[in-house]
Design a binder for these strands. Structure first.
Length: 558
DNA sequence: AACGGTTCCAACCGCCTCATG
DNA sequence: TCATGAGGCGGTTGGAACCGT
C-alpha cells in the first residue's frame, strides 16, 4: 500500500498504514496523514515552515504547509534530523564515555543525556545505548567502563561521607536510615504489588540480597547493572513507577546507579541490622539500622508466601542472553535466580540463605538460618581455632568459609553449570586503558580474571583445600573487580591508602570505618576484629574476603 | 551469488506532564 | 476542579545495510 504525496514521489510506507501516529484514525481535517519515511520534499516543506513560523505548534504544520504529517511526526523529524547544528556520524570516544557516565548517573533519561551532548538527539543516544547493551552483553562485557564505575564509586564515597557528616551535625543518626527505609519499604511494597506480573523474577529476598550487595560489592555490580529489555514496559509504567513516588526507578524497571548507591547501602545495613539483634555485641550498625527490624519484622519480611516479582535490572537479560542459558535444563526461574546469585555478588551467608536448596531464600528463612548460624557460632569458632597456625584473619576466613562450605557446596551443585557462563557474562572489564570503550574478548576477560582468581584463591585457600572456594571465587565478580582495581592501582604506584579507601567503599560506608581500622593493623583493631570478636564473626564473608583481597594486593604492591 | 544473522537507525506508539480554558 | 490539547519522552518496531558463511 503506497501513498502519494504532493511531489508525486511514490511513498514506501513501511507500515502500509494510512493511519497517523496519533492513532486517531489517520486524518486531520479529513486529510490522510502520511506515515513512514520522510521524503526530501517533505523535509523541505517542514524546514520552510519552521523558518517562517519557528518551532512549536507542530499541529499547525499540516494546516499551514499542507504537509500530510501529524504534528508529532513533524516535531520528531525536525528534532532528530532537520534542526541545525545536529551532529551526524558515529559517536566519538569522548561522547561514548560521556554517555556511559551520564547513563550511570541518570539512567534512561535520554533527553537529559542529549542535553549534555550538543548536536546529539535523544533518539540517537538511545539507539546507541541499546545497541551497546546488546553488543556488550553478547560479548560478556560490563555495561559501564571501569572508569565510570570507579568514578561512581568515588562520588558515592564522597557523597555518603558528606551525607553522614551532615547527618551527624544534625545530631540525627537515624534520619538517613529512616528516609532510606522509607524508600526501601516503598520498593518492597511495590514489589508486593507487582507480584505475578512477570514471568521469571526473583523473590523478595533475592531482590533484597541483590540490592544488599550492590553497594557492598560495589562496582562490579555497577558495571554489570543491566537495564531491562523486557517488553512489558507498559505494565511497568503502571506498576513500578508510581510506587516509588519518584522516578528513581527507570521506566524500564531498573535503578540508576545513583539510586543503587543510595539504597544498597541501606539494604546492606538492614541486613546487618537483621544480624544485629542476634549479635550479642551490637555494633553501631545495628544501632543505626535497628529500627526496621526491631520487631524482627522488617518491610522485607513481607509475607513469604507472596512470591513478589519484579523486574530487577541486575537480572534482566535480553532474550538472546536468556538464550545463552538455554543449554541448561534448569527452567527460567531458577536460571534467573542463579544469575541473581552470580551476578549480584553478596556475602556468602546471604547467598547461602538465598540459594541453598533447603532454603526458600525468603527473609524469614534467612532469619531462621541466621539464628541457626548464631547458635552454631561456638561450633564454628572451635572449628576455626583448631588451626593453631592460623592468623586472626586466616582463622576468620577459614571459619567463614567453613561456615558456609556446606551450603556453598550444595549451591555449587546447582550452579556449576552456570558458573563459567556467568563468569563470562559478568566479569568486570579488566581493561584499564582508560577512556577506551573497546570491548574485550570474553576469553580474555575470563583468562585474565582467572589469573586473579588463582591469586586470590591461593590466599583464601592457603589453609584449606576447599575446592568449593574455587567456585566461590568464580562467582564473585565483585572481588575480581576489587582485585583489578587494587592491582591496577598498585601497578600505577597509587598509594595503598587509596586502595584501602576503595575497598572500604566496596564494603559499604558503614563498614568502611571499621574496615579501615581493621586494615590499619592496630592492636586495638585486632581486638575488635579478632577471631574471637563477635562483630567480626558475624560480619558477612564479603568483608572478610575483601580484607584478604586487600592484604593480598598489598603484598603485590610491596 | 545466495542466504541468514546482526546491526543500525528512522519512525511509530502510547503514556505522561503541563498549560490553558 | 476538570477536560482538553500540545508537546515531550522513552520503549519498541521494522526495514535497510552490513557482514560472515
Amino acid at each position: 500500500m503506497e501513498n502519494e504525496i504532493d511531489d508525486g514521489e511514490p511513498l514506501k510506507d513501511q507500515n502500509g498504514s494510512e493511519l497517523n501516529d496519533e492513532g486517531n484514525g489517520g486524518s486531520a481535517g479529513g486529510v490522510i496523514l502520511k506515515k513512514g519515511p520522510w521524503t526530501s520534499t517533505e523535509d523541505a516543506i517542514l524546514v520552510d515552515y519552521v523558518k517562517k513560523h519557528g518551532e512549536g505548534n507542530w499541529n499547525a504544520v499540516q494546516k499551514y504547509s499542507g504537509l500530510s504529517r501529524c504534528g508529532k511526526s513533524c516535531r520528531l523529524r525536525w528534532a532528530n534530523h532537520l534542526r541545525p547544528n545536529l551532529k551526524k556520524g558515529a559517536f566519538t570516544a569522548e561522547e561514548e564515555r560521556l554517555i556511559a557516565e551520564l547513563h550511570a548517573k541518570m539512567g534512561n533519561k535520554w533527553a537529559c543525556m542529549a542535553a549534555h551532548l550538543p548536536g546529539r538527539t535523544d533518539n540517537e543516544i538511545k539507539n546507541y545505548w541499546n545497541t551497546r547493551i546488546k553488543r556488550r552483553q553478547r560479548a560478556g562485557l560490563p555495561l559501564y567502563p571501569p572508569e565510570v564505575c570507579l568514578q561512581a564509586l568515588q562520588e558515592s564515597q564522597i557523597g555518603q561521607s558528606t551525607a553522614r557528616k551532615n547527618d551527624r551535625d544534625r545530631g540525627n543518626h537515624g534520619s538517613l536510615q529512616k528516609s532510606s527505609n522509607e524508600i526501601h519499604d516503598a520498593i518492597f511494597d511495590s514489589l508486593k504489588a507487582n507480584q505475578g506480573l512477570l514471568p521469571c523474577v526473583p523473590e523478595i529476598p533475592n531482590i533484597s540480597a541483590d540490592s544488599v550487595l550492590l553497594k557492598g560489592l560495589g562496582s562490579s555490580q555497577y558495571c554489570n547493572f543491566l537495564p531491562s529489555t523486557l517488553p512489558h514496559h507498559k505494565r511497568l509504567r503502571e506498576s513500578t513507577t508510581p510506587f516509588l513516588g519518584s522516578n528513581v526507578m527507570n521506566r524500564n524497571g531498573y535503578y540508576p546507579l545513583d539510586h543503587i548507591r543510595d539504597n544498597a547501602s541501606n539494604k546492606i545495613a538492614q541486613y546487618f541490622g537483621m544480624h544485629a539483634h542476634l549479635d550479642p555485641c551490637p555494633s553501631k550498625n545495628s544501632l543505626s539500622y535497628g529500627h526496621s527490624l526491631s520487631n524482627g519484622n522488617s518491610s522485607t519480611s513481607k509475607p513469604i508466601s507472596e512470591a513478589v516479582k519484579i523486574e530487577l535490572p541486575s537480572l534482566q537479560y535480553p532474550e538472546t542472553d536468556l538464550g545463552s542459558w538455554g543449554r541448561s535444563p534448569t527452567p527460567p526461574p531458577l536460571v534467573e535466580s542463579v544469575d541473581v546469585f552470580i551476578q549480584s555478588p553478596r556475602n556468602s551467608a546471604l547467598e547461602s540463605d538465598c540459594s541453598s536448596p533447603q532454603n526458600t531464600g525468603l527473609l524469614d528463612d534467612m532469619l531462621n538460618q541466621a539464628k541457626i548460624m548464631s547458635s552454631s557460632k561456638k561450633h564454628y569458632s572451635e572449628k576455626s581455632s583448631n588451626s593453631s597456625t592460623a592468623t586472626p584473619g586466616d582463622g576468620a576466613d577459614s571459619g567463614a568459609f567453613n561456615m558456609f562450605e556446606t551450603e556453598w557446596e550444595d549451591y555449587t551443585d546447582h550452579i556449576s553449570s552456570f558458573g563459567a557462563t556467568s563468569m563470562l557474562n559478568e566479569c568486570p572489564a579488566i581493561s584499564a586503558t582508560g577512556n577506551s570503550l573497546d570491548e574485550q574478548l570474553p576469553a580474555q576477560i575470563f583468562s585474565g580474571n582467572i589469573a586473579k582468581l588463582e591469586s586470590a584463591e591461593h590466599a583464601w585457600t592457603s589453609n584449606s583445600e576447599n575446592q568449593s572456594m574455587s567456585m566461590f571465587n568464580i562467582s564473585r565478580p565483585d572481588l575480581l573487580l576489587a582485585s583489578d582495581w587494587i592491582e591496577q592501582n598498585s601497578r600505577n604506584g597509587q598509594n595503598p591508602a587509596i586502595n584501602k579507601d576503595a575497598m572500604a567503599t566496596l564494603l559499604g560506608d558503614d563498614l568502611a570505618t571499621d574496615y579501615k581500622q581493621m586494615t590499619a593493623g592496630t592492636s586495638a583493631s585486632s581486638q575488635v576484629w579478632g577471631l574471637g570478636s563477635c562483630s567480626w564473626n558475624n560480619m558477612p564473608a564479603v568483608c572478610q574476603m575483601a580484607d584478604l583481597l586487600y592484604k593480598d594486593s598489598l603484598k603485590m604492591y610491596d
